[in-house]
């Protein structure tokens, strides 16, 4: 078996106005997706939702800036899931992440509201 990453792109403004029912529905459809993957002979190895891009911080050659700032010729090339004490701790580690002339976008994982 080979491994693949599914990168989900959506209009995030929709989620900024989501009601508890919307979240409930989202949890259900993603739960259903996980079952479908199994039915289809695959495995979900992991998955997370990210907080919106307004919470993103970009580290490029040691310089920290607000927001997601990949340049158009730069493509999503890989990811690490990091546990850190806080944003400063995460940014310190992002600065040593080997990404050459590119950048690391640091985005908090979403804490799904408990229903």
């Amino acid at each position: 078996m080979a491994k693949y990453a599914f990168l989900l792109y959506e209009d995030e403004t929709v989620w900024l106005q989501a009601t508890p029912e919307d979240w409930d529905t989202a949890m259900k459809v993603h739960g259903r997706f996980t079952e479908q993957v199994v039915e289809m002979g695959g495995t979900v190895l992991g998955g997370e939702a990210l907080d919106p891009t307004t919470t993103a911080t970009t580290v490029r050659r040691d310089v920290v800036t607000d927001g997601p700032f990949a340049e158009t010729k730069e493509a999503f090339g890989g990811f690490y899931l990091i546990e850190a004490r806080d944003l400063d701790h995460a940014l310190a580690m992002a600065k040593v992440c080997p990404v050459g002339d590119g950048c690391v976008e640091v985005r908090p994982l979403m804490v799904i509201p408990e229903g």
Binding site: D51, T54, T55, D88, P108
Partner: peptide, 10 residues
Amino acid sequence: KKKIAVARIP
């Protein structure tokens, strides 16, 4: 303010 809270700016 939201970013400070969500991204955990210490």
